[in-house]
Simulated assay, not measured.
Amino acid sequence: MNRNFWITALIAFINSLSLTILIPIIYLYGKRFGLSDFQTSLLFSIYSVAQFFATPVIGKLSDRFGRKPLLIISLAGTVIANLIAGTATTAGLLFFARFLDGITGGNASVAQAIISDVTTSENRARGFGVYGAAFGLGFVLGPATSLLAQQISLGAAFLVAGAVAFVGLLVTLFFLPETLQNKADKAQNIFDLGLGNLISGLAMPKVGVLLIINFFIGTTFTIFTYAFQPYFINVLGQNSQTLTLMFLLFGVLGVIMQTWGVSILSNKFNIVSILFLGLFIRSLSFVLMPIWQNIIYFVIVAILFSLFNSLVQPMINTLISLNAQAKDQGTAMGLNASYLSISNGVGPVIAGTLIHQSQPITYGYPLYLAGILTFLVLFLAIANRKRYAPQLQ
């Protein structure tokens, strides 16, 4: 791994830190503005829907003009959006800030394209594993930072997240060189920004089927990530501090698995098999979580979930990268991030629709649904294995 790889991993960590400072508080911050459970799910969704349209544009432009300028624009958008959210006085301003962050939020897909630029096909799985670990490290320090910021106010967490993203912007400006060696041809039409790829990308050989699988993976996962928070607070009787500590636990275990775990498993199993293992344990965990309404039981299941869940996204990212042509890495990663973003918009709405505050039992329904649907996604991935399994396996 060369210097550019480690700089990118650092930027991924900073980006993750900025993001995960917010994850434990968005639900509760929305409640401060008088939003219902369903309305807070829309607060999650507007960010993701905006990203859905933005990331293929950012991905294609990064293939055309280079990774660095697009990463700078994306990080700058996050800084401004978090400043607005942290000082918002109305729910409307908060929704606008989340939309702005989403529409400029292609930094993860551009960073993934950089990883593809600077790694060989032989060590790409390890590269994405380290990248995932760097991102996961943010899930360790992000909740801890959030916990400190919450002592001031929930809005202060947004301001801290914006400051962290600003550091990432400075690192990109002064330390990250351009990694794209062969730029894509300039567009004949100035309106050719990659939105058409949202449809045509599904027909990309081997990549298209992975985009579909990852869309369903993301949808089922974000049903859980939204439903987990009201379930943890309203059913298990916890608060924002213990919720943040749970996210800290998820982050610590994720880093352990993505550093040592991925390396060990990669020596014994191929990428596709590791993906299947992660999906199976994820689906089983979702179903088990709401069976017994006890915090100790929940934490035990969450530990199992955290260890194996962290295998899924690095493996799917690796498969997409290995199946995409070198000149299309940015486009493929942008499409991947885009479909993952729209799935992040769909999942919370599904969860929010199933929850009824007057009926506490309904807080467990989205968790059962996420588990059942993840089993179906696993079957879909197994049935289509021959369409995307790389030749090196």
Rank of each mutant, 00 (worst) to 15 (best):
Arg3Glu: 11
Thr8Trp: 04
Ala9Asp: 00
Ala12Val: 10
Ile25Glu: 01
Ile26Phe: 07
Tyr27Leu: 02
Leu42Asn: 04
Val49Glu: 02
Ala50Val: 14
Ala50Tyr: 12
Lys60Pro: 08
Ser62Asp: 12
Leu70Gln: 06
Leu71Ala: 12
Ala76Thr: 15
Thr78His: 08
Ile84Leu: 15
Ala88Thr: 06
Phe96Cys: 12
Gly105Ala: 13
Gly106Pro: 05
Val110Trp: 05
Arg126Trp: 09
Gly127Lys: 01
Gly138Ala: 06
Thr145Ile: 15
Val160Gly: 09
Ala163Trp: 10
Ala165His: 10
Ile199Val: 15
Ser200Glu: 12
Pro205Ala: 10
Lys206Glu: 08
Gly208Pro: 10
Val209Ile: 15
Phe215Tyr: 11
Phe232Pro: 08
Ile233Phe: 05
Gly237Ala: 08
Leu243Tyr: 01
Val255Thr: 10
Ile264Ser: 10
Leu277Trp: 12
Gly278Phe: 00
Phe280Cys: 09
Ser283Pro: 11
Met289Lys: 05
Ile295Val: 14
Val299His: 00
Phe305Leu: 15
Thr318Ile: 04
Gln325Gly: 14
Met333Trp: 07
Leu340Glu: 04
Ser341Lys: 07
Ser343Met: 03
Val346Lys: 00
Ile355Glu: 01
Ala370Asn: 06
Ile372His: 06
Leu376Glu: 09
Leu378Met: 13
Lys386Gln: 13
Gln393Trp: 12
